[in-house]
C-alpha cells in the first residue's frame, strides 16, 4: 500500500485516476482506518487530501458558507457563523461518532462513505447544499442529494474528489433541525433520521420547506410530499400528521439487525414531525 499526501486537488485527482488498483481517499480517516484495521479493504493507494490548500477552511461566500472537505466535525461545531445559519446541518455532523472521532471526522467523508444512515447527509439535503468536485475533467458543482448512489456507493467518477460543501444563504425567519433514532443515546448508528429545513412568511406560516430522511431507503430521501404537507401551515396537528404520513409513504427500508421495516417507517414519520417543530421554533415561529 502506497500513501501519498497530495499538495493540490488536481494532483489528488490525477493520482486517483492513474491508479490501476484500489485507491482510497484519506481525510479524517474515521471510516477508512477502521476498514483497514479490520481487513475489509486492502487498498493499493491511499491519497491524503488534508494538505490541499484551503481544504480545512470555512469561508463566507454569497451570504452562505463554503466548508472545506477536511474541516472536522469538531471545528464545524465551533464555527459560530455556520451554527447560526444552519444549526440543523451542524447538529447532524456533531452526532457522528464519539468526541474523539469528532476531532477527525468530516461531513464530506460521511457523505462519501455512502451509508444510508450517514448523519451529516439528511441535514445537507434539507439545506439544498451543493458540493464542489475536482476531477480529471476539471471542476463541477453538484447537489448533495445526487452524490449517494446506494449503500457504500456514490455517483462520483473515478478520479473525482469533493473539495468543499456550499451551504447557501437563507432569508430571515428560516432554520433547520436534524433528529435521528438510535437505541442508545450516543455512539450509535441511526435506525431512522430526519432533517427538516423551513422558511417562514411574516405571519409565521411556512413558506418553503425541505424534508429529508435517512436510513429508510438505499440512499437519503428528499420527500417533496412531506414539504407540501406543511407549506402554508403553522404546524397545526393536521399538518404534522400529514407530514408524518408523507414520510411514512416515502420510506423503503429494510429489515435488519438494527430495526424492522415497521419500526423504521413509523419512526421516520415521528422524527420528521419532531424535527419540523424544532426547526419551526428556531425559525421564530411560535405555537
Amino acid at each position: 500500500m502506497r500513501y501519498i499526501a497530495a499538495k493540490t486537488a488536481d494532483e489528488a485527482a490525477g493520482l486517483l485516476v492513474d491508479e490501476p488498483g484500489l485507491a482510497r481517499i484519506l481525510a479524517g480517516g474515521t471510516d477508512l482506518l477502521v476498514q483497514l484495521k479490520s481487513g475489509l479493504v486492502e487498498p493499493d493507494l491511499v491519497v491524503d487530501i488534508k494538505n490541499i490548500p484551503g481544504i480545512r477552511d470555512v469561508t463566507p461566500e454569497n451570504g452562505g458558507f463554503r466548508i472545506g472537505a477536511a474541516v472536522s466535525a469538531a471545528e464545524l461545531g465551533e464555527h459560530k457563523g455556520v451554527l447560526a445559519l444552519w444549526p440543523g446541518v451542524v447538529e447532524g455532523v456533531e452526532l457522528i461518532g464519539s468526541t474523539q472521532v469528532q476531532g477527525r471526522a468530516t461531513m464530506v467523508g460521511n457523505l462519501c462513505n455512502g451509508s444510508p444512515a450517514g448523519d451529516a447527509v439528511p441535514g445537507l439535503v434539507a439545506a439544498n447544499a451543493t458540493v464542489r468536485i475536482t476531477g480529471p475533467g476539471g471542476s463541477r458543482d453538484c447537489p448533495v442529494l445526487d452524490i449517494p448512489a446506494g449503500p457504500g456507493k456514490t455517483t462520483l467518477a473515478k478520479g473525482e474528489i469533493i473539495t468543499s460543501v456550499f451551504l447557501p444563504a437563507r432569508p430571515e425567519n428560516a432554520s433547520d433541525a436534524y433528529l435521528r433514532f438510535i437505541p442508545r443515546t450516543e455512539m450509535d448508528i441511526g435506525v431512522a433520521s430526519a432533517g427538516v429545513s423551513l422558511e417562514l412568511a411574516a405571519d409565521g406560516a411556512i413558506s418553503a420547506a425541505r424534508v429529508a430522511l435517512g436510513a429508510v431507503a438505499p440512499k437519503v430521501l428528499l420527500v417533496a410530499d412531506a414539504a407540501t404537507a406543511i407549506v402554508g401551515s403553522k404546524l397545526e396537528d393536521g399538518a404534522l400528521a400529514a407530514l408524518a404520513k408523507a414520510c411514512e409513504a416515502a420510506c423503503n427500508p429494510i429489515d435488519d439487525k438494527r430495526g424492522t421495516i415497521e419500526f423504521r417507517t413509523r419512526t421516520a414519520g415521528v422524527l420528521a414531525r419532531r424535527a419540523a417543530l424544532i426547526a419551526y421554533q428556531r425559525a421564530g415561529g411560535s405555537k
Binding site: 450516543e186 450509535d188 448508528i189 439487525k257
Partner: peptide
C-alpha cells in the same frame, strides 16, 4: 452472527 462488534452489540454507554 450478525453483530460481532460493539456498534451493533449494544452495551449501555454512560449517557444511557
Amino acid at each position: 452472527l450478525q453483530n460481532a462488534g460493539f456498534l451493533d452489540y449494544r452495551v449501555p454507554v454512560a449517557s444511557d
